[in-house]
Design a protein around this nucleic acid. Structure first.
Lengths: 170, 170
DNA sequence: GTAATTATTTGATTTAAGTCAAAAGTTCTG
DNA sequence: CAGAACTTTTGACTTAAATCAAATAATTAC
């Protein structure tokens, strides 16, 4: 089964700043990061709002685009030079069809992600800007210092100025 | 397959105010609502914070407790007299084992819920208290007027007073 | 049906974070 | 490596929502 998977994934590299996925296109690819950081974001009132960041050993895609072949609002770009693998959704479906344990793995993985989302919602709802930043540092303990301030601010839903002041104080 | 499912679900009723699930216990049950409203909440600083509300034709459980048999922070109670069905996790696993299409259905359903979560995160991050309330009304268009103000306020992460003033203005 | 409890509204004041503006610091690019 | 183009910081001022406090209104229970 492992080789079935490895047969279907291909390496790809992205330069810093390069667009990995354009919200105007439907993407049948899902990426597994080997090195670097990808950012998922969307545009609101002409500004880029970061949705989340993905580092080493994480899968990244635009869920609606990838799973349902529907356009969604999410762009993905590279914050750093990034090395990744990608798999096509057709190949993934083939694996799900032939390896039920993979389907189960996918379902259970989603349960975990689910928990993270709920935690994030709580974090956003009830905390001051400072607490949000501390929570962000914990969530992204390995990579938080490599993400530009403006992107962090939009991820947290606070202004750059406020984040800059929070950083200055500590 | 339909009968396999119906063989394994049982009816249950809850009185208004009744606790459906205590965070101190692990629950192997998932409920499907036929009538009424259930509320999922947790306690923060001694206060009940509403996480979400569930109405007719929706499944409700405490995901971590149900799927992973681990304690989680979520309580569930009945906002109204409620009629529901429940299924035991063991029976659900049996169905997943024997009906791969159910496993797939579950995985795809989670994808949809996923999308709702992302939308909610966006709604929380960038909107004023008033916009949050408008979004809440859309999300719960069928039942929003049946949920007490205090519970709505904690769901939105704003104070009761602020919500009361928003309502007064429109 | 009335007292007791609980939920909602209204008012006055405070505060955290936003906005606007400009300066200082970085990093691209030819 | 020097100027352009971003990014981050700092300052002064504004505002939305929180807090504290008390008054109504609506449920619930006896």
């Amino acid at each position: 089964m492992k080789s079935e998977l490895s047969k279907r994934i291909k390496p790809i590299v992205f330069q810093k700043g390069e667009l990995v996925l354009d919200a105007n296109n439907i993407s049948k690819k899902s990426y597994f990061i080997n090195k670097g950081i990808l950012r998922t974001y969307f545009i609101k009132d002409g500004k880029e709002i970061s949705e989340y960041f993905s580092g080493i050993n994480e899968w990244v895609n635009s869920p609606k685009s990838f799973m349902q072949r529907k356009k969604d609002i999410y762009y993905i770009d590279a914050i750093e030079n990034t090395e990744a693998y990608f798999i096509n959704v057709d190949d993934l479906v083939y694996l799900f069809d032939n390896y039920p344990e993979m389907e189960r793995y996918a379902r259970l993985s989603m349960g975990t992600v689910f928990g993270h989302f709920m935690e994030r919602i709580t974090s956003i709802r009830f905390t001051s800007a400072k607490e949000k930043y501390i929570h962000f540092q914990k969530t992204y303990s390995g990579i938080y210092h490599r993400i530009p301030l403006g992107m962090v601010a939009s991820y947290l839903g606070i202004t750059q100025e406020t984040l800059s002041r929070i950083r200055a104080k500590k």
